[in-house]
């Protein structure tokens, strides 16, 4: 982890504020260009602070074949212990034979712009990295209280049984800070996953978000997720219509049900 316990959040926060202030001044200086960029912002991005790097992911569900290669890559890359998952692919089965279908929903931490996990963390161990907007856990500070795990509306967090700290997808910060893409993106067979800076108008992910009907999951929680989906099917066992057949298999080690 690049930010270890010797750099307290207060300083990070301070640096972040300063850098944002500087960026705001810079933006004001080139107001014309910035306005153009803002005008082409996709609707899903509205209301975000656009002048900073914000890494995110776009998952094109039309290209996902549910092969779980990303699940395995994540397990290996992050050395995730048995019994818990950082990343998984849910299977959603719907309808009755012969009119039945199955869709896939890869899940990972959304690296939200308004993360509930950060708000509730009582030690400041969970924080937003100012340089790329990723939400990470400082293992030198975390006490393992799991308050963050309850606060996350996406059920992303768990107690790592080996370290006894909170754990979740960190978007492979060790890779992305060296210019590589996260392991799941690297391994994806159908190239369903696109990684990049959603605020950079020249990035592939920015263009794809702008041009496609994207959606995020559990948007009503106001967390402003940075993982976008194309072709998202929001069917859930809890919201199925009378007589409808729906079965959701999470394929997640520690919770067979979506919560």
């Amino acid at each position: 982890m690049s930010d270890s316990s010797d750099s307290p959040v207060s300083r990070r926060k301070f640096l972040k504020t300063v850098s944002q202030g500087a960026a705001a001044v810079a933006t004001a200086g080139v107001a014309g260009g910035a306005m153009h960029a803002a005008a082409t912002k996709p609707a899903a991005d509205a209301g975000k602070k656009n002048n900073k790097v914000q890494y995110g992911m776009l998952i094109d569900l039309r290209r996902c074949i549910g092969c779980q290669a990303c699940t395995v890559a994540c397990k290996a890359e992050a050395d995730v212990p048995m019994g818990v998952s950082r990343s998984w692919v849910e299977y959603v089965e719907k309808g009755r034979y012969p009119n039945a279908g199955r869709s896939f929903l890869p899940r990972l931490c959304n690296h939200c712009s308004e993360p509930h996990c950060v708000r509730v963390c009582p030690t400041g161990a969970t924080y937003e990295r100012p340089q790329d907007g990723l939400i990470v856990i400082d293992q030198g500070v975390c006490i393992g209280c799991l308050y963050c795990a309850h606060a996350c509306p996406y059920d992303m967090r768990f107690l790592n049984p080996v370290t006894r700290f909170a754990d979740k997808c960190d978007m492979c910060i060790h890779r992305v800070s060296k210019g590589l893409v996260p392991s799941c993106v690297n391994t994806c067979q159908g190239r369903a996953r696109i990684f990049g800076d959603v605020n950079d108008p020249n990035s592939e992910i920015h263009k794809l978000i702008a041009r496609n009907p994207v959606s995020v999951i559990r948007e009503t929680y106001g967390t402003q997720p940075n993982v976008y989906y194309i072709g998202l099917d929001t069917t859930d066992e809890n919201t199925k219509k009378p007589g409808q057949y729906v079965r959701v298999t999470t394929n997640k080690a520690n919770s067979p049900k979506r919560t």
Partner: peptide, 9 residues
């Protein structure tokens, strides 16, 4: 750490 990790923050 509840008290000391980042007092002002």
């Amino acid at each position: 750490n509840l008290f000391t990790s980042n007092f002002w923050f």
